[in-house]
Simulated scan of single mutants.
Amino acid sequence: MKTTTLLKRTIRTASFLTILLVLISFKHEKPKSQNSLEISKDLVLNNVNDYNLAITVKNNTIEVERKDVQVVLVIDTDGINNSNLDSKVLFVNVGDTTENRSGYSKNFLTKVYKNKKIQWSAVPQDENSSLTIDVLAIFRKEDAGAEIMEDIYIEEGKKGVVTAKIKNKKVVGIENYSVVFRINEEIPRTFTVDPKLQMGP
């Protein structure tokens, strides 16, 4: 009788421990949907071709929204002239974390997204400089290629900043355009540089 009772207790204890182990294992296991979400998020965040993104997560689904693009011209005003512009004007795509986020004006490419905006402004390279720099105009070149921008304007209250609206349709190819900027010194000087635009996915 005692042997039977002891055996029953042993079986109950073993069953309890088995259930406990299963519960602990389940608690530490991530749901498949969560694992998939983390993998997808990692792919988006590490995609070197996609920047200026807004990433939100709703109901375990990643939503990627393209954002407006800001381009800042960082200008070395010391000795700048029309023959050395390519080494004096650095373009920076604000918010871009790729290796192509900045470069000198010649052949510099910025990716934009349909139905969004792009905005240009300029600052002196020397942070202690008292000079200001205005972007005066953006215009398509004669050999512009693809037509990505549909409206170029200066917003009220944003002196020295030019904005362009991007077409609300997919445009393939590269658009060649010009940026006109003015260095506001005792005798103001105006220069033109020629970067490029491309529509991202």
Results as ranks from 00 to 15, higher is better:
1 M>T: 15
2 K>D: 14
12 R>I: 12
14 A>T: 12
16 F>M: 03
19 I>L: 10
20 L>C: 12
26 F>C: 10
26 F>G: 07
28 H>F: 10
32 K>C: 05
34 Q>I: 13
37 L>D: 03
37 L>P: 03
37 L>G: 01
39 I>C: 00
39 I>H: 02
41 K>V: 02
43 L>A: 06
44 V>K: 08
45 L>S: 11
45 L>C: 06
47 N>S: 14
51 Y>P: 00
54 A>R: 13
55 I>F: 05
59 N>F: 06
59 N>T: 05
62 I>W: 05
64 V>R: 02
65 E>W: 00
68 D>K: 06
69 V>Y: 10
69 V>G: 04
73 L>A: 08
75 I>Y: 10
77 T>V: 10
81 N>R: 11
82 N>P: 05
82 N>Y: 02
86 D>G: 13
88 K>Q: 10
90 L>P: 02
97 T>Y: 15
98 T>I: 03
98 T>A: 14
99 E>D: 11
101 R>Q: 11
102 S>G: 01
106 K>N: 15
110 T>N: 08
111 K>Q: 09
112 V>N: 05
113 Y>K: 02
115 N>C: 00
120 W>C: 01
121 S>T: 04
124 P>Y: 06
129 S>V: 10
129 S>E: 06
132 T>A: 07
141 K>Y: 00
141 K>M: 13
144 A>I: 00
145 G>D: 04
145 G>M: 02
146 A>T: 01
151 D>T: 09
152 I>G: 03
154 I>S: 14
155 E>A: 13
155 E>I: 03
159 K>Q: 15
164 A>P: 08
167 K>P: 06
168 N>T: 06
174 I>K: 12
174 I>N: 07
181 F>W: 13
181 F>P: 04
188 P>A: 10
191 F>W: 05
192 T>D: 02
193 V>D: 02
197 L>V: 07
198 Q>W: 06
200 G>R: 02
